[in-house]
Amino acid sequence: MEFLSQVAAVAWKDLRVEFRSREILYTMTFFAAMVLLIFSFAFVTREGVVLPDVIPGILWVAVAFSGTLGLSRAFDRERESDTMRGLLLAPCSRTAIFLGKAIGIATFILIVEIVVVPMTAVLFGAPLFDHAVPLVLILILATIGYSVVGSVFAAMLLRTRSRDVLLPVVLYPILVPLLIAGTKATAALLEGAGDPTAVADLDAAYFWIKFLAVYDMIFIATALWTFESLVIE
């Protein structure tokens, strides 16, 4: 019980700080929207429509890149008055601190997705919401995995000088399976979009959803296992 209340305290603290300053959410959302906008001009065919096959990729690139921004900033905040040390001095397990931070990040990413996914649907005319249940599952599972892996690396780099440059470099290779799964699952939902006789490939979508669930479980376990040793000076 105490463990859960400590997790909640850390996550709620991050949300409260963010709702006061709003800098993470504004930057992330603005950046993701810009990515969508740029791609919406880049991938237009001669007929003036966007190639449907690239839409899932664009969505996930936007989410992944803006997620990195949020991740850097959320952990940078713990450096400002050395608050990370303040957290680590507390008599709660480091796992609770880690989970609290990861939940905070996941919430930021989910909020950005609430803006960006409908925007994708509108900008590209993609019928993303025809299959709302698998779509929500994909988004939530990918966000959880992203936040867990991201928090591990952001915490690990907290005391290195070039952490902003290093974070994407170390993070993305580990995220490749997650981003592929997210893209493939979304693509399966959009299968044959615009063609009234075609149907979405829900079997493929659920395959990738299961893949994401397994990815999440593996990395949550690994993160809980390694976090303690990452933060000792």
Binding site: S5, S81, L89, P91, C92
Partner: peptide, 30 residues
Amino acid sequence: RRQIGVLAHSSFMYGELTGLENLAFYGQLY
């Protein structure tokens, strides 16, 4: 750690939270 109290060079305080909120937050962790 429950028995150790530390005052360091840095304040360990979140600038966006009030003094009271900062303490209440640490109180929960402790």
